[in-house]
């Protein structure tokens, strides 16, 4: 497997604020790579650097063999970008936008028109093709923006929070589109603050916080990192200690009792639930509730950073604002 996107030790400072603090990552060709982190973690800054919109203070970035910092024009030829704010012209129609961008992507006029129509069809926008973008819904704009980034059929695609602000239906639609692109061989780097999204789409995830990658791996690997699965049993308060004893032998770690909740780290999945039920039955302990819990990416975030992913959402994404002028 070859590496399609490689960032090495990227640093970007805005005065005192460090937006990127030595960020490094590698993305395998033909896979989805998820950059996961709360607002202000540096996700957008990272994408802006990788897509030539921003120069880092130091570090290197190679995309599909092209040095992004040394040869930005060539880099722009071979990658697509769909940003957080749909970057299309609100005063043009959908088809006008795509034709304009196609021509700016160096396509001859005829080819630009054909390509625009293809993409509108593919993204279910043909009915709205001749409507001014101002009248589009959020989901339609996002799809048009994604279509715009695909005009030149790039091998590499950067998606900055592709589903932020979308309703659940539009989100599912977007996921499907992204999945299809990857099936066709496109390499995708996407940023998201939705744990579920990274889990769903990405083969590999990098969790970033304060401009640095703090953990990397597949969703499963990251979850294992915080202790794998556990069985949670709820029993009556008086029986919780007895339950803990009964379950200790099947546990892969230390059983924790919190009031009437008993947490049993296990490895082996569903079979272990059956075992636990048997053990408790033998010990004549009544089960109020029992479930197998796999850690969510939020658990991962919590254990890595000491705070929940959502807690620091209020922090502003400092990077783009300061970049102006």
């Amino acid at each position: 497997m070859s590496i399609a996107i490689q960032a090495n030790n990227l640093v970007k400072k805005y005065g005192e604020v460090i937006a990127l603090d030595g960020l490094s990552l590698e993305v395998e060709q033909g896979t989805v790579f998820g950059l996961l982190g709360p607002n202000g973690a540096g996700k957008t800054t990272a994408v802006r650097v990788l897509t030539t919109l921003l120069s880092p203070d130091s570090g290197t970035a190679i995309v599909d063999g092209v040095d992004v910092l040394k040869d930005p024009v060539h880099a722009r030829e071979i990658m697509g970008l769909s940003g957080q704010n749909a970057s299309v012209d609100e005063n043009l129609t959908g088809i006008e936008n795509l034709i304009m961008l196609g021509r700016l992507f160096r396509l001859p006029k005829k080819e630009a028109i054909i390509r625009a129509n293809d993409l509108l069809e593919r993204f279910n926008l043909n009915d709205a093709a001749k409507r001014i973008v101002k009248t589009y819904s959020g989901g339609m704009r996002r799809r048009l923006d994604l279509a715009a980034s695909l005009i030149a059929k790039p091998n590499i695609l950067f998606l900055d929070e592709p589903t932020t602000g979308l309703d659940p239906r539009s989100r599912l639609m977007m996921w499907e589109v992204i999945q299809n692109l990857v099936n066709e061989g496109t390499t995708v780097l996407l940023t998201t603050q939705y744990l579920e999204e990274a889990d769903q789409l990405a083969k590999k995830i990098a969790v970033i916080d304060k401009g640095k990658v703090i953990a990397q791996g597949s969703a499963d690997e990251l979850k294992t990192q915080v202790g794998g699965e556990r069985i949670e049993v709820v029993v009556s308060l008086s029986q919780s200690q007895a339950a803990a004893q009964a379950l200790q032998s099947m546990s892969s770690g230390k059983v924790v009792v919190e009031g009437d909740h008993v947490q049993v780290p296990v490895s082996g999945g569903g079979v272990k639930v059956v075992e636990a039920v048997r053990a408790l039955d033998i010990a004549k302990i009544e089960i109020k509730e029992i479930q197998l819990r796999r850690p969510t990416l939020d658990d991962v975030f919590l254990s890595l950073t000491g705070h929940h992913a959502e807690e620091i959402k209020v922090e502003e994404d400092i990077a783009p604002k300061k970049g102006r002028r």
């Binding site: 030829e77 304009m100 005009i151 059929k153 790039p154």
Partner: peptide, 28 residues
């Protein structure tokens, strides 16, 4: 080619593309 653009970009020089891009933006 890694994109359609890569196929076409090298067909003309800088000045041609500047005028081409300007005319597209003017149209817009």
């Amino acid at each position: 080619p890694r994109s359609i653009t890569e196929q076409y970009a090298s067909k003309h020089g800088k000045i041609y593309w500047l005028l081409h891009d300007s005319s597209v933006i003017a149209w817009r």
